[in-house]
């Protein structure tokens, strides 16, 4: 990425409704953190610094989903001061776990959680950043993978296309050498429909993938759902399986609604 006059590119990190985990991932890059700070100017990162640099920013990382009117306005501003905008994590990319509100009456949700719901201003839905502004890249995961985050930053610095494959978890699972938990154990696993990036963690720990990276780019639900049923999941289980951290991703949303109608 060329920047004006050879200066260091400016990085900003923004937060909306989220658990903070994805921006924390940047601080979890213990080996790279000081190096990143030498190569990029971390201009705005509230979680890590009380100083804010001047706009515009060369790269904005956005964590979290849009759940309030103020946030919907704030993200417009962020887009306008960012040359590149990369969303980090399931909240920013698919609305996050808080998008479970999309299936319920938010007034009711609010009443369950807050005694005086009128104090709480919130939108009826939790929506991804891309529903509000154009996004240059969406980094998946709940949380994102540290290696992928470093890849995005280094690729950005080199002007290279980040190597962030869109295929399913199965690809990484096989590369890792883990015997397929569906085939070898009859364990329900969302790996075949889930976006790679985590390194196929769950199967390596003997559990089925639970879809925290959202849908992959090539999905065949009509062939896949019967596997979940065969391996012991009932309709409610299937609905729950797709209604977690990427529940508002269009593919997961559609299949969970379809299953819920059964």
């Amino acid at each position: 990425m060329s920047t004006d006059g050879g200066r260091r590119p400016k990085l900003a990190v923004w937060k909306f409704a989220s658990c903070d985990g994805c921006q924390l991932t940047l601080l979890d890059c213990e080996d790279e953190l000081l190096g990143i700070a030498e190569e990029v100017e971390i201009s705005y990162f509230l979680e890590a610094s009380s100083a804010a640099g001047p706009v515009p920013y060369d790269l904005s990382l956005v964590d979290g989903s849009i759940t309030t009117r103020q946030d919907a306005e704030r993200v417009q501003h962020i887009r306008s001061v960012s040359r590149r905008l990369v969303t980090i994590g399931a909240c920013a990319t698919a609305g996050g776990v808080q998008a479970l509100r999309n299936y319920a009456d938010v007034a009711e949700f609010r009443a369950v959680v807050y005694a005086k719901p009128e104090y709480i201003a919130t939108l009826a839905t939790s929506t991804p950043i891309s529903a509000h502004v154009p996004v240059d890249l969406e980094l998946r995961g709940c949380p994102i993978d540290r290696g992928q985050l470093v890849e995005v930053i280094t690729a950005f610095l080199a002007g290279r296309k980040p190597d962030v494959p869109d295929h399913s978890v199965c690809f990484q699972c096989k590369q890792r050498g883990t015997p397929c938990v569906i085939v070898a154990h009859g364990t329900p696993c969302l790996g075949p429909v889930t976006h790679a990036g985590c390194g196929a963690l769950c199967p390596a720990y003997g559990r089925g993938c639970y879809g925290c990276f959202g849908p992959s780019n090539s999905i065949n639900f009509p062939a896949f759902i019967p596997l979940l049923r065969r391996d012991g999941m009932d309709t409610l289980d299937v609905v729950r399986a797709f209604r977690t951290f990427n529940t508002a991703a269009p593919e997961f949303d559609a299949v969970s609604r379809e299953e819920a109608r059964r």
Binding site: S168, C170, K174, S218, A223
Partner: peptide, 13 residues
């Protein structure tokens, strides 16, 4: 193709 998940498992194994 109706049964294929395009998961690539066949190629990897």
């Amino acid at each position: 193709t109706a049964r294929c998940l395009t998961c690539g498992n066949c190629t990897m194994v």
